[in-house]
């Protein structure tokens, strides 16, 4: 199966199948804590283009507001700040993780089993991803 996948990938590459410019992996959206109105989003975003990409905004139909935040711990003090963008270097990746850069998703609206995240670079939509909460969550 693995060999078949590699062969298929090689054939597609040979045929010049275009790679998507942005790929999100390891996506996780936390459910709001009891009594709370916010969640966090963590993922790795890969830029397959030769140009740097800036994701400047994210929105979601399931949340009233989504902000890009970064937590830093310096000299034992935890600080969380809104940052203007997620910078993804050309042919590189950026990690959003616990204790680092993350999405802050606020005020859920009729939250069901899944969340859709729409990424923008300026006014241009550049990627949409879906996350389904684990069944045992």
């Amino acid at each position: 199966m693995r060999i078949a996948t590699i062969v298929l990938a090689t054939l597609l590459a040979a045929c010049g199948a275009p790679e998507p410019p942005l790929v999100v992996s390891e996506l996780e959206v936390t459910k709001p804590m009891p009594g709370r109105h916010m969640s966090a989003g963590f993922f790795v975003v890969r830029n397959n283009t030769p140009e740097d990409i800036r994701i400047t905004a994210v929105d979601s139909p399931q949340f009233a507001s989504v902000e890009i935040h970064e937590t830093t711990v310096t000299e034992g003090i935890s600080r969380m700040r809104e940052i203007g963008a997620i910078e993804i270097p050309a042919n590189g990746s950026t990690v959003l993780e616990r204790g680092g850069k993350h999405l802050m998703l606020m005020r859920p609206k009729a939250l069901g089993d899944s969340v859709t995240l729409q990424f923008y670079s300026g006014d241009t939509p550049v990627l949409s991803v879906d996350y389904t909460f684990p069944k045992d969550d």
Binding site: M33, G35, R36, H69, T71, V73, M80, R98, M104
Partner: peptide
């Protein structure tokens, strides 16, 4: 604090 979505629950 409970409005902290990242480092506190983690």
């Amino acid at each position: 604090f409970t409005h902290c979505p990242d480092i506190c629950p983690t």
